[in-house]
């Protein structure tokens, strides 16, 4: 189930600021497991699952459904498209990609590259700058302008790839893997009793500075907010200290952005239910939805779960599906563990 959801999610196009198609997929999968679905003014989607308590506390889960990508900046005299980035796009990953320009209708295009035969020696050693790249849609300027305007969103065209075991690769797993975690959590909760109202929020615009999570958290005003995002997974060239291992469970964040009691409880639950977990040390800004949520209104007790992911911000991001399932289970048991709990007491320093 979660594999199908992931496939559908990452093969849908939802550039930061243009997430409505992705929201439709999220709604389709979340609806059976929630009491109410709401879209806020920014476009973030909340799936609300009511708790049993008379005066329920509110738990907000946040995973962002936007993806990094490109935007049309200019159409040149020959019909080639110049573009800029939306979010942290690595220009080294762009040459020879297939893209879709979301204009009046979706148009395929390719980002071309100079033939190696005629590269100058100095050019071979340098990465090409984004401002020097062009998208070719195969149209003249006049024809292109019928379909394409300045500011049209552009995404990478990429199918999800099933690797061996339970690993999958694709674009936008940052952070649709997190959206899949919320799905797993809601599914688990459908067979459990919980006191708190749960708001599973697929947020918009995280990649440009968690601009969706800030108003969403204001709107919901949660007692506890937990962001689910992706974290660097180990590969041979990366330091062990900054990474988590793929397949060894979600990484539980610890640091200034994290309420220590939320951290403690997540670890306690992981141990109690034999859910694999890893530690993720984040001393300062996490740059995730948790960072935006924490300083909402009078302050929100925040937690952060990271799904280990290789090759972040490329179109071959790779995750292990077991980490997603385990994170979903951990969140569900965490929420149930709050039954009968005086949250004010629990979160007291």
């Amino acid at each position: 189930m979660v594999r199908e959801l992931l496939k559908e999610l990452v093969e849908t196009h939802g550039l930061t600021g243009y997430e409505s198609e992705t929201a439709k997929i999220v709604e389709k999968y979340f609806r059976p497991y929630s009491d109410e679905i709401k879209l806020d003014k920014m476009g973030s989607l909340s799936a609300i699952k009511k708790g049993k308590s008379q005066n329920p506390n509110r738990i907000m889960l946040a995973a962002h459904m936007d993806e990094i990508g490109l935007m049309v900046k200019k159409i040149d005299e020959k019909g080639f498209i110049q573009f800029t980035n939306v979010g942290g796009v690595d220009q080294r990953t762009l040459l020879t990609q297939e893209v879709i320009i979301h204009g009046k209708e979706d148009l395929f295009g390719v980002i071309g590259s100079k033939p190696p035969h005629i590269l100058e020696a100095s050019e071979r050693k340098k990465s090409v700058k984004m401002e020097d790249m062009l998208i070719d849609v195969g149209l003249s300027k006049e024809e292109a302008e019928k379909y394409i305007s300045l500011g049209d969103p552009i995404t990478i065209r990429r199918k999800m790839l099933n690797l061996q075991d339970d690993m999958v690769a694709g674009k936008a797993l940052d952070d649709r893997a997190g959206v899949a975690v919320m799905y797993e959590c809601l599914r688990e909760l459908s067979n459990m009793n919980h006191d708190c109202d749960v708001y599973a929020v697929a947020t918009v615009q995280e990649e440009v500075g968690y601009r969706g999570a800030i108003p969403a958290a204001f709107n919901i005003s949660p007692d506890i907010g937990i962001a689910i995002d992706v974290g660097f997974a180990s590969t041979p060239e990366l330091s062990k200290d900054d990474t988590a291992d793929l397949g060894k469970g979600p990484a539980i964040g610890f640091g200034a952005n994290i309420h220590p009691k939320v951290y403690d409880r997540l670890i306690k639950i992981a141990k109690e239910y034999n859910i694999p977990w890893q530690q993720d040390i984040c001393p300062g800004a996490t740059g995730t939805d948790a960072w935006g949520m924490q300083v909402t209104r009078c302050g929100v007790a925040t937690g952060l779960l990271s799904i280990p992911l290789r090759y972040m911000h490329t179109s071959v991001e790779t995750v292990d599906i077991n980490d997603i399932k385990n994170a979903g289970k951990l969140l569900a048991y965490f929420i149930v563990s709050l039954n009968g709990e005086d949250l004010e007491g629990m979160l007291c320093y």
Partner: peptide
């Protein structure tokens, strides 16, 4: 004309994420 500005921001950047969000 349509504008895509690659660096720089303005007041709407703060306005649109105020309270529950402002288009």
């Amino acid at each position: 004309q349509l504008e895509i500005l690659e660096a720089g921001g303005t007041d709407s950047g703060a306005i649109h994420i105020t309270r529950s969000g402002v288009p």
